[in-house]
Computed example of a mutant assay.
Amino acid sequence: MTEGNFVDYVKIHAESGNGGKGSVHLHREKYITKGGPDGGDGGRGGHIILRGNENLWTLINFRFKKHFKAGHGAHGSKQRSSGADGEDIYLEVPLGTVVKDAETEETLFEITENGEEKMLVEGGMGGRGNWHFKTSTNQTPRYAQPGIQGRETDAILELKVLADVGLVGFPNAGKSTLLSVITSAKPKIADYEFTTLKPNLGIVEYRDFQSFVMADIPGIIEGAAEGKGLGHYFLRHIERNATLLFLIPADSKDIGKEYRILLDELRRYNPELIDKQRLVAISKSDMLDAELMAEMRTELNKDLKDVPFMFISSVAQLGITDLKDRLWAMLND
């Protein structure tokens, strides 16, 4: 999946179908001149329904088609025949899709399971035919209910990536390089900030044919929680991750300070993110010799306190197997 094909935010317009009219009909056949009312009910209008699909990773299907209209219910007819229901429209969305009202931005529901179906707009009810209104004092009612009009709504579809491990770090920390080494993903890599503008997903193959999903989230900068830089555009994707892997380069001026800034941005965006499991990986560690690594380890034990950390290098393949082991243990803790 290329970066341009990743769409995680769209607005759509959905309109359900009208209910069909009830029929006004009086039964007539040879030798029966006054058979009474037998008008059937109108069919209901079609619904607009969202359905989760585990094979989808993006909302790109809604990039060019954003208006959806369900079918109208058919009118009732004689002999109490009900009209056909309007055709329902099913919209397939990736797991992790949050649906909001476009006007109020209130969250309506979320799709998190494969095959899960949620009603976005309900079709109008069909009107009842005149046979429902027969009474002892009015045995030939000549009226029936009209169908109820369908409804329309504007909705926001917002994707929060479902991944086991989320990569968190400042721009140019080496997240895309790590993802390309540890998974089969092919993210865009270059030596400048904000190379990654959309989340990249990769499958990490582990022992005994087991695997887990890792997401490379675009880099955080100070003020991201208030929308600075790419802001909320990418922070929402971290909410779905079970474990957060903080990636900080070994040549950083102050590793502890960078970690605290990253953690504070997550806390300000959503305090619940602080409760997730965390692991700090010091990237680009191939530039460190054993003596310098030992000194840094002593300092980090004080600076990071109880947060586990390890030294890795994506280019030199240093500590990559140990990183997989540690993440797998955390995910299955």
Rank of each mutant, 00 (worst) to 15 (best):
S283Q: 02
A316M: 12
Y31M: 13
K78A: 15
P308S: 01
T243L: 14
G129D: 01
N332Y: 02
S313R: 04
E258D: 15
K11D: 15
E3V: 12
T321N: 12
N241E: 06
T2N: 12
L247T: 09
G174C: 09
M310A: 07
V24K: 00
A290M: 13
R207M: 14
N332L: 03
M287N: 10
L120N: 00
G71N: 07
A250Q: 12
L26R: 02
P141S: 02
V280R: 00
A74W: 05
R260Y: 11
P37C: 00
L56I: 06
Q139A: 11
N172Q: 13
H13D: 05
G40R: 01
S82D: 08
G174N: 10
A185H: 08
Q317S: 08
K30R: 14
D254Y: 11
D85E: 14
D41R: 05
M330T: 02
D251P: 03
D289A: 04
A173Y: 06
Y259G: 06
P218Q: 04
G22V: 01
D8T: 12
R80P: 06
E258P: 07
M214E: 00
M214T: 00
E106I: 14
A281F: 03
P218G: 03
K65F: 08
S16T: 10
F6E: 10
G319N: 11
D306V: 06
H27C: 04
D275V: 14
G83Y: 01
G126V: 01
A14D: 05
A173E: 05
E113F: 13
L178Q: 06
E92R: 11
G229A: 07
S136Q: 14
G223K: 09
G169S: 09
A294F: 08
T195N: 03
R207E: 15
M296W: 08
K302H: 10
A185W: 07
T112P: 08
P171A: 07
D8Q: 10
V7M: 03
I156D: 03
E122W: 03
R128W: 02
F68W: 12
I220W: 12
I312A: 10
